[in-house]
Amino acid sequence: MKEEEPDPRLERVVRFVEDEMDTAERVDFEKEMADDPSLRSDVDAARRAIEGLRTLGEERLRQELKNADAEVAGAPGASRTRWWWAAAAVLLLGGLAWWLVPTRDTPQALADEFRWSEPGLPVLMGTSPRAMDAIMNAYKQEDFGTANSLLAAALERDPRNDTLQYFRGVLQDRVNGCASAEAWYAQVHTTSVFASKAGYGLALCALKQGDLSLAREQLRRVVAMGDPQVSPQARALLLRLDKI
């Protein structure tokens, strides 16, 4: 479906499932639906899409509430138990040990330790094979040569697709290293769902090149994005970097 040519049938389906029809229109639509299995199938797909979006919204809110707890736990004066002073003493001693005990962390070692292994997207089989499914199949089977050529072809057709840009970066990172990956990660727009993971990839690349300042800057951005997969890892890595 092209952007300039909205599907009038789906337009009605959306208004039905979003409860935007008046009573008369709704009654007509329901009659039509009773006689038309394909319309019922469209309504079912629309309900699934909206249900899925709402579940994703719940997941995001749940993560935000957990983040609110984490912030309180990290805030000074948060604990009101009678063990406050004992806990403070333990923390103080722990903190002193943290700063006094020498560390063997190097940027390269940290980059290896905190490496994020992209699991890939789920592969879905539809009535027609999809380019992304073939790419993900190859990626998950570690057939990086095939995945890379499929990605290159897909990017030629759709150079602004952020999913393709991100996975090209991931593949280049695994096969050729940072020098080839960085340009792809950098192309992923900040509004992309892959922005946090691409940012994390860039931070690790900066770390491998010994640019601690750039690595920290990238990691702070990733932490701020609140991605449940890479933001906690970015936060932990920032703490370790403070020891270097």
Partner: peptide
Amino acid sequence: LQRLIALV
């Protein structure tokens, strides 16, 4: 949403 539904 229409485009997402078409994909789903």
